[in-house]
Design a protein around this nucleic acid. Structure first.
Lengths: 209, 209
DNA sequence: TAGATTGTTAATCGATTAACAATC
DNA sequence: TAGATTGTTAATCGATTAACAATC
């Protein structure tokens, strides 16, 4: 696996491949060529072969790709079989919804704990996940292996909370606040869900059709 | 405003500019150069000037940009002053959370109605938004001007519901289902929030540090 | 075998960055 | 005026697409 110089564009296509291949699996498709996969996904066959070739040789000349095998390979590349551990900070409306509905396990994540400032929430569990006080955050992080922290907290405390967690050694943030977080350590990764940015993009597109 | 050939990359930076400029406004900053704006946002000054020049000449040599003015211009380009009308389909956990917490008005959107299949939900209101039966959807859409539909429904009914709405003339979709929606009409725009794709991207990044 | 399709190299296209004359 | 900074053109860089030999 020659994983140097993988561009952001390629990485962002991987989950889409994974999704499409899962779908093909469910539909009972055994093999697929880059050409037909491209047709289904609106991507050129060239790009698909180029993308996959960053990570290895998964196909066979004259045959194409075995769907189940390719799906497993891409899942492996994405790390779905790494059993990453995750903790949620902020169990308001959005955090609650994610705990209840989002299938973390399908992405290979286990949610071990959640933290909130509200005394009413602390001590309860949501969908089996215990909610602790923010006062216990540092102790918890020091005592457990946490790969990713979900930030579902108010904007106003976003960067401060992130800094606190970075100091505790956290390297992965799934950020739902509409704030651009940053760290001087390039090993710290931020993945943002910016609802407002997304809606504004749509606003632009419908306004400039 | 010479708005031909605006690339996707540029469009996706506009909300970030808008966010940053709003922040600068709130901090009382009056003027800013492309150079200092770039430093704050981790973007080159060249790119900033190039981006803005797609839409007009908003700066002044030797001075830079007036923050409030530039913010207004970009807001205008994004369509925040268009008062777009929006309807939500599916008021489950996530839909409910968005109605309660998301500031649609800040992006220039008014939420006029929501629709759900649950008899328990129909007839109630959430944060002032009335919830109607899915049976009344067609009649409603025909009788009102709706610019964007938010899809917060189960995956299984996503494409069918989208098709139904496209037939009714809807051109803008804010899609929260983890499904790639499509239409033969290029004027129909889809903006996706793919939670799972986002988390998988992060998974890749922390696994390949 | 003949046809299909890969992985990879080369060509093209587009986006980012650098440079600079214009000018506030 | 002199210094700063724009808008724009040219240069560079990177990503996508096309082509094709290798081979199943």
């Amino acid at each position: 696996m020659k994983k140097e110089n993988i561009s952001d564009a390629v990485i962002r296509r991987l989950p889409r491949y994974y999704r499409q291949l899962t779908d093909l699996c469910n539909r009972g498709v055994i093999r697929i060529s880059s050409h037909s996969l491209g047709q289904e996904m609106n991507i050129t066959a060239s790009q698909i072969r180029q993308d996959f070739s960053c990570f290895g040789e998964f196909g066979q000349q004259g045959y194409g790709y075995n769907v189940e095998e390719l799906r497993a390979e891409i899942g492996h590349i994405l790390g779905v079989d790494n059993n990453h551990h995750l903790v949620m900070i902020g169990v308001g409306n959005l955090g609650h919804t994610l705990l209840q509905k989002f299938l973390f396990s399908q992405a290979g994540f286990t949610v071990d704990a959640a933290f909130d400032v509200s005394p009413a929430a602390v001590g309860t569990t949501v969908n089996g996940v215990p909610i602790y006080s923010m006062d216990d955050l540092d102790t918890y992080i020091r005592g457990h292996s946490v790969d990713v922290v979900v930030l579902t907290i108010p904007q106003s405390v976003a960067q401060d909370t992130a800094d606190r967690l970075i100091n505790l050694g956290i390297k992965g943030f799934w950020n739902f606040t509409n704030v651009e977080l940053s760290s001087s350590d390039p090993d710290v990764k931020f993945e943002n869900i910016h609802f407002a940015d997304s809606l504004l993009t749509l606003s632009y597109r419908i306004a400039n059709r």
